[in-house]
Design a protein around this nucleic acid. Structure first.
Lengths: 121, 121
DNA sequence: CCCAATAACTCGCTAGACGATATATCTTGT
DNA sequence: ACAAGATATATCGTCTAGCGAGTTATTGGG
């Protein structure tokens, strides 16, 4: 691989865990909330990613809880995970800004709220 | 898939074609330039993506040129492709901003130039 | 003369997202 | 009481797509 190139799914999983540890199902919900309902994480994707990211040291298993008879297995973002996310966020932001600038120069009809709300300063 | 979820490679291929049609090898070079040498597109990735994106209507074959005895096969971004890129750029920017904000709130040691140069206002 | 750069393309491998499925508990509606 | 849906975990087979490596060909420089 080039340098890292994590997927958008993984990016959002990491983002969901920035503020506090969450369990699998909680991550699915938080990712949906963060992405405004656009990214509906599949559990097949989730548990695979959770194992992989734990193996890479970006996540670590946190406590296990039993809440109302149901097991909750929590994961937290490690320092390494936070650093990786920060790096990805920086790269993504610069790529997005690049594309937007070039599209503006081309003068395409802007579909979203690209010119409406303040994305960047 | 969720909605679309293009890869970072595809995102950069589309971005490289915003200003003008380019041929395969030219796309590889432009993507490297745009990503500051970070993304070295593999030709196995490129030609697969070119076919796929053409099939999806995001790209279209442009003219074929013979420059100095070597064939150059050009592709251009369609209106649909520009719209798709604009959409992706918007989504990526918002995801990146989200992650950065949450990381700031957590107070992680910012590794890159996140606080140094003007990323966001 | 050979090697690197330019230029196209193919193929097998593998990583990773997805759909489906299984299991179990708790809640809500009828 | 019973069915259905939300909550919660996990596995498995499939399919897509990126990557490494290899093929062919031309031009230019050391």
């Amino acid at each position: 691989m080039n340098t890292s190139t994590r997927t958008e799914q993984v990016f959002l999983i990491l983002t969901a865990l920035v503020d506090r540890p969450r369990h699998g199902y909680g991550i699915v919900q938080e990712v949906a909330r963060l992405s405004d309902g656009q990214m509906k994480l599949k559990v097949g994707t989730l548990y695979g990613a959770l194992d992989r990211l734990t193996g890479e040291g970006l996540l670590a298993p946190d406590r296990d809880e039993i809440e109302g008879g149901r097991l909750r297995r929590y994961y937290r973002l490690t320092e390494q995970g936070a650093a990786a996310l920060a790096e990805d966020a920086e790269r993504l932001a610069s790529h997005a800004a690049l594309a937007t600038r070039r599209l503006r120069e081309r003068g395409i009809p802007l579909p979203g709220k690209l010119g409406t709300a303040g994305g960047a300063a």
